[in-house]
Computed example of a mutant assay.
Amino acid sequence: MAIVKATDQNFSNETAEGLVLADFWAPWCGPCKMIAPVLEELDSELSDKVKIVKLDVDENQETAGKYGVMSIPTLILFKNGEPVDKVIGFQPKEALADLVNKHA
Rank of each mutant, 00 (worst) to 15 (best):
I3K: 07
I3W: 08
V4W: 10
A6L: 08
D8K: 08
N10P: 03
F11C: 04
F11H: 06
F11W: 01
S12L: 15
S12H: 15
S12W: 14
E14F: 03
E14N: 10
T15C: 01
A16N: 13
A16G: 10
G18D: 01
L19I: 14
A22M: 09
A22P: 02
F24A: 01
A26Q: 00
P27H: 12
P27R: 13
P27D: 14
C29Y: 04
G30W: 02
M34Q: 14
A36G: 02
L39N: 02
L39S: 02
E40D: 13
L42M: 12
L42D: 09
D43W: 04
E45A: 12
L46P: 06
S47W: 01
S47K: 13
D48L: 01
D48H: 09
V50K: 04
K51Q: 08
I52D: 06
I52F: 04
K54C: 07
D56H: 02
D56C: 14
V57T: 10
V57P: 01
E59I: 13
E59H: 09
N60R: 01
N60I: 00
E62K: 15
Y67R: 08
G68R: 05
G68Y: 08
S71V: 11
P73C: 12
I76M: 07
I76F: 00
F78N: 00
F78M: 10
N80H: 01
G81S: 09
E82M: 11
P83H: 07
P83F: 08
V84I: 09
D85C: 10
D85W: 05
G89E: 09
F90I: 14
Q91E: 10
P92H: 10
P92I: 05
K93R: 02
K93A: 14
K93Q: 09
L96A: 05
L96N: 04
A97G: 12
D98H: 10
L99M: 15
N101Y: 08
N101C: 02
K102V: 00
K102A: 10
K102N: 14
